[in-house]
């Protein structure tokens, strides 16, 4: 009798490793941090393959590791949102109907990540900029600028990965 937990645990870890590798292979880098890459792909694969809980856990690990490998700390709330939280929400793609409609899963997960980065940007400016500066639009559009292309590429790749079947179905 195989221990399912160890199997899922190791698989999550290896996929997080793949995500870290892909996050370094930037297709395009934005000037203030954030870049267009396929880093979200392994987390979505994990969520579709092993369910939302594994996806959320994998996302949290990815965020923590990015922080450990040299993240940016400018405010406690910003760190929590930009690192674990922003990647955790990608795991939502593994829940319910999102798991069956993969493109919808990618879209919803990425949109949640965009929201979290936006809130983080607002929290940052709330702490550093004088009151009255309008920052929601700025933060949203800045983050959308690299996240939307990333999400589109990831979505296309996810749809095409589904065809061989091996990737999303554990043996």
């Amino acid at each position: 009798m195989r221990n399912k937990n160890i199997q899922i645990m190791v698989e999550t870890a290896v996929l997080v490793g793949a995500a870290l590798l892909l996050s370094e292979l930037r297709l395009f880098r934005a000037p203030q941090g954030g870049s267009v890459s396929l880093e979200m792909l392994p987390i979505f694969v994990l969520a579709f393959r092993r369910g939302g809980a594994a996806g959320v856990l994998g996302g949290a690990l990815l965020g923590l590791l990015q922080l450990v490998l040299g993240g940016y700390f400018v405010h406690p709330i910003q760190v929590f949102l930009d690192y674990p939280a922003a990647f955790m929400v990608l795991g939502c793609a593994g829940f319910g109907m999102l798991k069956r409609n993969k493109w919808l899963g990618v879209a919803v997960g990425s949109f949640f990540r965009l929201l979290i980065h936006t809130v983080s940007g607002v929290a940052f400016f709330g702490a550093y900029a004088p009151e009255g500066s309008s920052v929601w639009a700025y933060s949203f559009s800045y983050n959308a600028w690299y996240l939307v292309p990333s999400a589109i590429i990831t979505g296309i790749v996810i749809l095409m990965l589904g065809r061989p079947g091996e990737v999303f179905e554990p043996r």
Partner: peptide, 28 residues
């Protein structure tokens, strides 16, 4: 480009799962 990545990503994922499975068996 995204389309061209498929022949890279499919074997990469399949290999990663195989390695993960090997490691899980070894740990157990």
């Amino acid at each position: 480009r995204a389309k061209n990545l498929i022949p890279l990503l499919v074997p990469l994922f399949v290999n990663a799962f195989r390695r993960a499975d090997d490691l899980a068996i070894a740990m157990e």
